[in-house]
Simulated scan of single mutants.
Amino acid sequence: MTETLDPADTGAVASAVGAAAERLHTALVENRPCAPVRELIGERDITLAYAVQQQLNAHRLEAGAVVVGRKIGATSVAVQQQLGVDTPDLGVLFDDMEYDASAPVDISGLLQPKVEGEIAFVLREDLAQGDLDLDQVAAAVDYAVAAIEVCDSRIADWDISFADTVADNASAGGYVLGTERRTLDGSDGRGAFVPKDAAMTMTVTGQDDVAGTGAASLGDPLVALQWLARQARDLGDPLRAGQVVLSGALGPMRPAAPGADVALTIDGLGSVTLSFSEKE
């Protein structure tokens, strides 16, 4: 691991950030894992890690990708303890990351995918002004849906520190959304949907079932959304109407092997499935 960079040495800092972003971009483009970037930027310099993420994502924007939302990671105590932190992280969702549940995901386009069951929120209002308290955040949600997130690390063997996963766009890979939409205030005539109380089960071919509730994500997925809204604004890129937000895992991740089928059910949000192609 590199020694801590001196923030006053702007040249060294810029060089380290650029090298880390280029390493991750090459891994993404060439579809092959790379060494951790913490050796370039340190394990816990989150400011530098987000700077790397911004440069990495700029490559995708330059190639024509469109931002459609955000994801929150490290929302569970267990994952935070594993990474040695006490805060979540965030990443960007691009338009080519959404999968169609009716067709298998081409697993050859992923490096080392894992799946999580989550509640996704679709926003009807920007979250850019005001106190961003829980009432404001909840009112900005158009609807909630069940979601399967596909996490994927460009870092070989998932050998990540917190800085590694932040730099690597929060280990974002892809996602699929369910079709059953619920409003939080009950305006859809079905009663209010309470994310923190929603029970989740997820099955993955050949593995133990996963169970959890909305409370696994920072105690309440709306609290996770609030954290994201504030952090995104602090980073100069606030959440916007129409964006999708993956609000954090409701249970442990499971690896996605070739040919695996994933089925997720969240009480009140119905089910969503995803399958992975066999390797040729």
Score class of each variant (00 low, 15 high):
R190Y: 03
L93Y: 00
L48Q: 04
Q207M: 10
Q55M: 15
D197G: 07
F94K: 05
S161I: 01
D45N: 15
D261I: 03
I148Q: 02
Y175F: 14
A216Y: 00
S271T: 10
D152Y: 00
Q129D: 10
Q55V: 11
D152T: 04
F193V: 08
L93T: 00
R23T: 14
E39P: 11
N57L: 10
D209K: 15
D106V: 04
Q82T: 11
A35Y: 11
D6N: 14
T165Y: 04
D261E: 15
D164T: 10
D168T: 07
A65L: 12
A172T: 14
D95T: 12
T213N: 09
G212P: 05
Y143W: 13
A156C: 12
F121I: 14
Q55P: 07
R154Y: 02
A78Y: 06
Y99K: 14
A138N: 07
G84M: 10
V194C: 12
M97Y: 05
I266V: 14
L28F: 11
E3L: 11
A12P: 07
T4R: 14
V52D: 01
G219E: 12
S108H: 08
S271H: 02
A170R: 00
L218N: 09
A78H: 11
S108A: 11
T265H: 15
A163N: 04
V145K: 06
G91R: 02
A232Y: 01
L264Y: 01
W158R: 12
E149F: 05
C34T: 13
L132P: 04
Q231Y: 10
R70I: 06
R60Y: 01
R182C: 02
L111E: 00
V68F: 02
G69F: 00
L235S: 08
E180T: 15
Y50E: 06
I155N: 06
E118Q: 11
G270L: 02
L110E: 11
S247P: 00
A63H: 09
L132Y: 01
Q53T: 10
G236A: 14
G219C: 12
D209S: 14
V122N: 08
S275C: 06
E43A: 13
A146V: 03
F94C: 10
T2L: 10
T10M: 14
A215I: 13
G11M: 14
L228R: 02
L28W: 10
A128T: 13
R32G: 08
A167E: 10
S217V: 04
I160M: 04
L110S: 14
V37L: 13
T183K: 08
G212S: 07
L218F: 05
G42H: 12
T26S: 12
D86G: 11
D142F: 00
Q231C: 07
I160L: 06
I46F: 13
E149L: 06
R44C: 03
D133Q: 09
A260D: 06
